[in-house]
């Protein structure tokens, strides 16, 4: 029920956006999230964008996990 799925934003039209998950396109309402741009990833929940996915943060956390692993194994 609280499932939200990352979707890529293709086009912003006022308070809605055309997004895709894999090859399937959806309409996402932007009533709950401002400043969404083409190329962003958003979390889509029941037709609403509820938050952006921070790509830099995703990469940073992964690098951090990996770094800790590396330092442990060396």
């Amino acid at each position: 029920m609280c499932l939200a799925i990352p979707a890529k934003v293709h086009q912003v039209n006022g308070d809605s956006a055309l997004v895709s998950i894999g090859n399937v396109e959806y309409k996402a309402s932007l009533l709950l999230l401002k400043d969404v741009k083409e190329g962003d990833y958003i979390m889509l929940h029941a037709g609403f964008a509820i938050e952006k996915v921070d790509k830099k943060e995703a990469a940073r956390m992964l690098a951090l996990f990996r770094e800790i692993e590396d330092s442990k194994t060396t």
């Binding site: 009533l31 709950l32 999230l33 401002k34 938050e51 952006k52 996915v53 790509k55």
Partner: peptide, 18 residues
């Protein structure tokens, strides 16, 4: 916060306001 790529400490204030 482990899920920092999506969750910000302040959450989504615009959604909360609504």
């Amino acid at each position: 916060i482990e899920y920092s790529r999506v969750v910000k400490p302040e959450g989504n204030p615009a959604a909360r306001r609504i």
